[in-house]
Design a protein around this nucleic acid. Sequence first.
DNA 1: TTCCTTTTTTAAAATGATTTTCATTTTGAA
DNA 2: TTCAAAATGAAAATCATTTTAAAAAAGGAA
Lengths: 148, 148
Amino acid sequence: MESRIERIKKHLHSSSYKLTPQREATVRVLLEHEEDHLSAEDVYLLVKEKSPEIGLATVYRTLELLTELKIVDKINFGDGVSRYDLRQEGAAHFHHHLVCIECGAVDEIQEDLLEDVEAIVEKRWNFQIKDHRLTFHGICYRCQDKEE
Amino acid sequence: MESRIERIKKHLHSSSYKLTPQREATVRVLLEHEEDHLSAEDVYLLVKEKSPEIGLATVYRTLELLTELKIVDKINFGDGVSRYDLRQEGAAHFHHHLVCIECGAVDEIQEDLLEDVEAIVEKRWNFQIKDHRLTFHGICYRCQDKEE
DNA sequence: TTCCTTTTTTAAAATGATTTTCATTTTGAA
DNA sequence: TTCAAAATGAAAATCATTTTAAAAAAGGAA
């Protein structure tokens, strides 16, 4: 059976891009840090551990390329940096996030939950939805426990 | 009856901040441009028309202050700049956005639409929601017409 | 293989948004 | 009026990200 890396390689090739060693190292870091919401700088530092010669600009270019190909999602929690999440394979919809305003933790919601809302928006606003971003800011279960 | 500006003034005073001429000029620009999703630079240029002595740093500081006091919402559509929206008075919930990937237009959805989703999230993830951000990316009704 | 063209990379410089610094001005309370 | 704190403006600094330019790598054709 085909590995995730191999499928990404094919995906790149089908758009006539190569899976260079630098790109592969970057993808591997993303694979090892799913759900971690790494910034470009985070990714850079992690890639550097195994491939010290890589440049920050290459990481940025790779993340941009992967975003274009919809292999990763670029997200923004309003803290001044973009973060990059590997897309779940076969996921029809982008996952949602829970950002804790106490401790800063970011949890993920894989369920869609928006089918009904999207149906309403498409019909009522006559808007053809291609993608969405939903983030809740609040207090996570861990911090709720702390307070009591 | 009390004007919007006066209520904002009281809001500032209740946190022991002053409504200085610069702050008032900034708020007035926001009041005159609701739904326009102005960037700090946009606000600065508009404020400058009436108050040419104002500095960009002051506009940034004012927008930050208004954000802290929840008088404005700072939003980010992933285009590299933060945008600032005056909050609807008495609006329990932040409004949502429709971003057109063809023409870049940003439309607003004032309806909540998320009550059910939030109830599920609060219960199932045991997360105490304080705020949310929901943005749909897709094709607006204007661009759909163009294509046909 | 060798040559050639294209893609990719690197490091450094450039850019652009935002924040900080610091000297000056304004403010409100005593 | 006097004083300390708050606010401002201009410039400098910062930080994330992008661009540049030259070198390296990759792939295909002869």
